[in-house]
Amino acid sequence: MENGDGPDTLIVEAENLDFHYGEKQALFGIGVGIRRGLATAFIGPSGCGKSTFLRCLNRMNDLVDGARVTGRLTLDGEDVNSPELDVIELRRRVGMVFQKPNPFPKSIYENVVYGLRIAGVRDRERLDAACERSLRRAALWEEVKDRLRESAMGLSGGQHQRLCIARAVAVRPEIILMDEPCSALDPRSTTKIEELITELKGDYTIVIVTHNMQQAARVSDRTVFFYEGKLMEEGETRRLFTSPGRRETEDYLTGRFG
C-alpha cells in the first residue's frame, strides 16, 4: 500500500451512476465511496444490482451487448469509463473472483502465473517467486507445493476458489472484487475463504458481494445495501447491522424479504 493512504481515503468513487442493459435500467444514480484497505460488503436481495455495480468497477459489463454507463466512476481519481483509459490496464489493477470457481484447465503453477505471463513477464525466477507468494497468501501453498505441475482440475471445490484468489493476487491488484465467492462452496471451505478475506484486507481493498448477511457481518468493515437498483444505505458494518437507518434496510436484515 502506498504511503499516505489510510482507511479514510477513497479508492473508488461513484457519483450519480446509471446503468442500462439496452432498454432496461439496472442502476439508478448510485453514489458511493469505497475506502482503501478495508473490506466492503455489498448486500441486498437478488436482482438489486449489487453484482452489476461490482462489474462496473472492472468494466466486465462491457462484455454484455447493449450495456451503457452514465455518470462518474473513478478509480484513484481516474475516470473508469473514459475512452482513453486502457481497459486491460484497469483489469490488472482490479482483480476479480467469481461465484463459480473458474480455474483454467492448466497446471496449478500456470494458473497462478497466468496474469503475469499475459502482462509479458517471462523471467522464471520472478514467476516462481510470485507463485509461491500468491499461494501462501491464499493459504494454499502447503497443500499444493508438491504438485504445482499437476492439473488444477484435480483440486477440490474450495481449493479451486483459493486458487482463483491466488491467481488474482499474483498480479498485485489494488482492489479485489469478489462476487459471492462462497455460494458454491461447502461450510468448511467457506470458513477458510472468510479467514482469507480477513487476512488480505489491509494489503488489498476488498469488495465482496454476498447474499449471506452473517458473512457480511463477519468479514466486512463497511457495508453497502442495494435495493432495486438504488443505493439505500451505506456505513460501518457494525452500526448498519445493529441500528440501520432506513426501514428497507431493517426489513432486509430481519428477513422480511430477499
Binding site: I88, L90, R91, K100, N102, G115, I118, V171
Partner: peptide
C-alpha cells in the same frame, strides 16, 4: 468452453 473461463481470463487483464 464455458463463459466463466473466458471471463476469468479477461478479468485478469488478458486481451
Amino acid at each position: 468452453v464455458p463463459s466463466e473461463i473466458r471471463h476469468g481470463s479477461l478479468a485478469l487483464g488478458a486481451t
